[in-house]
Design a protein around this nucleic acid. Sequence first.
RNA 1: GCUGCUGUAGCUCAGAGGUAGAGCACUCCCUUGGUAAGGGAGAGGUCGAGAGUUCAAUUCUCUCCAGCAGCACCA
Length: 648
Amino acid sequence: MAQISLTFPDGNARDYDAGVTPAAVAESISKSLGKKAISATVDGQHWDLAWPIAADASIAIHTMQDEEQANELVRHDLAHIMARAVQEIWPDTKVTIGPVIENGWYYDFDRAEPFTPEDLGVIEKKMKEIINKRDPVRTEVWDRDVAIKYYEDRNEPYKVELINSIPGDEPLRMYWHGDWQDLCRGPHLQHTGQVPGDAFKLMSIAGAYWRGDSSRAMLQRIYGVAFTGKEKLRAHLNMLEEAAKRDHRKLGREMDLFHMQEEAPGQVFWHPNGWTIYTQLQDYMRRKQQMGDYVEVNTPQVVNRHLWEKSGHWEKYQENMFIVEVDEDNAREKAINALKPMNCPCHVEIFKHGLKSYRDLPMRMAEFGSCARYEPSGALHGIMRVRGFAQDDGHIFAEEFQIESECAIFIKFLTDIYQDLGFDSFKVKFSDRPDTRAGSDEVWDKAEDALLYATRAAGIEPEMNPGEGAFYGPKLEFVLTDAIGRDWQCGTFQVDFVLPERLDATYIGRDGAKHRPVMLHRATLGSFERFIGILIEEHAGKLPFWLAPRQVVVASITSEADHYVSDVVDALKAAGVRAEADMRNEKINYKVREHSVGKVPVILAVGGREVEDQTVSVRRLGEKQTSVQSLADVVDALRIEATPPDLR
RNA sequence: GCUGCUGUAGCUCAGAGGUAGAGCACUCCCUUGGUAAGGGAGAGGUCGAGAGUUCAAUUCUCUCCAGCAGCACCA
C-alpha cells in the first residue's frame, strides 16, 4: 500500500498507509490521545476522525480542549440529535436543515402541529436519552439515486430538493446517529455520548421560510445553544440575562426617555429626558457637519407623487410609502402625495436651483431629514426600526474623480464621531447590486468599482454583502451591534449615478458644457432613533456625561440645607450643567437609590456640614465611595465634563 | 407581511364563567433621616378593541389592533 506523510503542528512528520484515518493516527501517537481525540484539521479542513486521508497533508488532532472545533462538533451533533428526538416523538415531522450558528444551532422542521414551549422540555429530555445511549456515529457515502430514492420512500421532500440542488458530481455523505440518519457534510463526533448532556439548552421556537424564500413554506425552527461544559452554558445564559437589562426599550422606560403607543406604531413619543439626548446629539452633529464643510438644508414632508415617479421611488418603493390623498376643494382630480421616505430627491431639487459650476463641487448638502416609511409590521423593533425617524442625511454632489477622496474624507469623519460616542470598532459591509434596481449594468460596474476602490484606499477591507445594495447604487454600511449582538446598519455611504440622471441634475464643467454630477448619499449616525437606541444599549444607560439627560441631582439630607441646594443647582446651571434639586422629604438613602436607578451620573448630597463648609458630597454612578469637595472645584470639574467632546 | 407567543393599575405581575388583587410608583400625614427602598393612610382599572356563545364573559370562541422572538424585508 502506498505511503503518505503527515506533518504535525510541531513540524514532525510521520509516514502512514494511504487512507489512514485521523482516529488511527491519534491512536498511533498515544493510547490516551486515541481516546480523547474528537476530530482533526487536515490541510486546514475540519476532518472527521473516520474520514480516510489519501495524500500527504498537514494534520492536527483535536480534543475537547480545542474550543472552536469542539463547539462545532457538539453543536452539529446536537442538531442531529434534536432532529432524531423530534422524529422519534412526532414521526410525521419532516426534516430539512440544521446548521451550526454562533453559540449553538437550529433545525427547521415541517410539522402540521406547532411546537409549544412545553415541547422543548420534552425534546430536551429525549435528547438526553439519546446522548446516554452512546450510539455510534457512522458515515457513509451514497450515490445520488440511492439517496433520492431513500428520501422519497420516507416522504422527506425537502431532503430530495436539497440533493437535487447539490452540484452533480459531489459525493453525498450520510451520517448515522444510531438508527437515525441525515444527509450531512460532517464532520461529527464518534458517538452521541461524547456530547455533554448538561451543556445545552433549547431556547426558542420561531417560524422560518424554507430556503429563506418568503414565497415558500413556513417551517418551524427550534434554536438551541450548546457549549463544551455546563459552566460555559451557565455563563452564556447569564450573559443573556445581563444583556436583557440593557435593552433600550426597558431602559427607555426606566430612564423616562420615550414611549410608543398603539395609535402610532413605529413612532416615538420623546419625553424630556430622551429629547435632551436627541438634541445634544443633533447639536453635536450640526457642529461636526459645519466643520466638515456641509451646508444644511431642510425640505418638505409631503411631496406630490410626480417627484417620486421621476425619482423612481413610486415604482420601486411605493409599498413602503405613506400615501396621502388630498381632495382639494372637491377638485376633479385628487392630489396624491407621499410622506417623504428619503430626502435624496428633494436635495437634488435644491441642487438644481441655479446653475452649478464644477467650482461648486463637491457640494456637501446635509439635512436632519424626517422620513416616514411604512415598514412591515414584523420589522418594527423599539426605536431601532421605526416608521418615523430623522436621518442625519447628506448628499455630496461631486465629479466622478472626487468619489475616492470624498469616501476617504467621510470614513475619517464617521470614525471620529463614532469614537467620540464610545464606539472604537464597528463592522463595514460592502453591498453590491440587488436584483431590483435602476440603471444599466455599465453604470453599476462603474459605481461598484469606484466605491470599492475608494474604501480600500481608505484602508478598510469591507465584508462583502452581495446583492444588498440600494436600488440606485452600491453602498457601504457601517454596522453597530445591540446588547445581544444583533447587527444594525447605522452609517452608510452610497454611490449613485442614477438619481442625478433621472432628475436631470447638471453642472457646468471646465469645458463650458453640462455634465452629470455623481451623487454620494451618506449618513453618519443613520437615524437619530436607531443610533440613540444603540447608544443606550452600548452604555447600558450610563451615557457619557455630556449626553446624559439628567447630569446632576443635588439632594438635601435635611431640610435645613434646602436653601444651599438651590444655590448649588444655580451654580451648576450657570456652568452649563443640567442640574436639578431633590428637596423631597425623603431619606438620603432613598434619594441615592432612586437617582442611581435613574442612571444619573452624579449625585451631590448636602447636609448641615456642607452648608457650613460650602462643600458638596460627590457620589458617582456605580461607585460606593463619596468624596467631599469644595463647591467651586466641583462646578469647575463638571463644567468641563459637560462640554461636548468637539468643544473641549 | 409570515409562524408562534403575549396583552389585567404608570411599572412588574397574580387571578377566576358570577363585573378584580399584590409589590413598587403616585397623593396626604408622621418622620429631619449622612449615601441603593423609614412608617401609616388614600386614590387609581370599560381586564387591548369589536362581535359571538351563555341567565351571566375580563375569563370560552372568532375577527381586528398592538407588542415580543425568529424569518422575510430594510430602497
